[in-house]
Amino acid sequence: MRYGGKREQEVFAAPDSATSSGVIEPGNSDMEDRSDENPRQQVFIPSERAQGGGADVKLELRRTEEGQLALLCYESLDLLLSACGNQQPWVSVYRQQVEEVQRTTAAEVVLWNALLPEEARKDD
């Protein structure tokens, strides 16, 4: 796993609050199953900024309008930064690890390339 371009241990922690602000609206994401795509492709996931030298990475989970806890995944760093803001911390994993990350964080659904509401974006 890479964190903001740096190599880190493969440890995931569900955020204490389980979600960040900003509800994902229908039509602003893609829930299509991508399990048959290149398993070694890098996938980018929004995270909280790492504090100290700890190995745990807290991923940012969001709620859908239906109330489901969602793990956001992006097919490129450019897509993540466009959808979440240019100051959004991130981690990258291989596509084949997304299901494991989903289980570890207790996310109910994986949303691909979701556009966050303006108030939830981390821009300059």
Rank of each mutant, 00 (worst) to 15 (best):
V110G: 03
S92Y: 02
E37Q: 15
V110I: 14
G5K: 01
K122I: 03
A55P: 00
G52M: 09
E108A: 13
E60T: 09
A14D: 02
R103L: 13
M31H: 07
Q41K: 13
R62N: 08
K58P: 02
G67V: 09
M31T: 09
M31I: 04
W112V: 01
K6V: 04
N38P: 09
R49G: 11
R7Y: 02
Q88P: 04
Y3V: 05
R62Q: 04
P117G: 04
E10D: 00
G22S: 07
D33G: 01
R63Y: 06
Q41L: 11
A13Y: 05
R63K: 11
A70G: 03
P89Y: 08
E65H: 11
V109F: 06
S29Y: 15
P89H: 07
S20E: 02
G4N: 13
E66K: 12
V109E: 11
T19L: 03
G85S: 13
T64S: 15
L81G: 13
Q97M: 11
D78R: 07
Q68G: 06
Q87V: 10
K58N: 02
E25W: 01
W90T: 01
G67L: 08
P15E: 05
R62I: 04
K58G: 00
G22M: 01
L81M: 15
N38A: 14
Q97A: 14
I24Y: 05
Q68W: 08
Y74D: 04
N113R: 01
Y3N: 04
Y94P: 01
A18G: 02
V91L: 03
R103N: 12
E8I: 07
W90F: 12
S47V: 14
G85N: 12
K6P: 03
Q96D: 12
R2V: 00
P46W: 10
L69Y: 08
D36Q: 09
I24W: 00
D30G: 09
L61F: 05
N113W: 03
E10G: 00
L81E: 14
R49K: 11
M31C: 04
E75A: 08
N38Y: 10
A70M: 08
Q87Y: 10
A107S: 15
L77G: 00
V91R: 01
A83Y: 10
P46Y: 10
R63Q: 08
G22T: 01
P117Y: 03
A114D: 02
S92V: 00
L77V: 04
D56W: 05
R49Q: 12
V98K: 05
M31S: 13
P89A: 07
E100Q: 11
R40L: 12
N113L: 05
G52P: 08
R49W: 13
Q96G: 09
P46S: 12
A120I: 03
L61N: 06
I45S: 08
R7C: 03
N28T: 15
L80D: 11
E32Q: 09
W90D: 01
V110E: 08
A14E: 10
V110T: 14
A83T: 14
M31G: 02
E66H: 09
E32W: 05
A50T: 12
A107T: 15
D56T: 00
Q97F: 08
E118F: 00
S35C: 06
G4R: 06
V11R: 10
S76A: 02
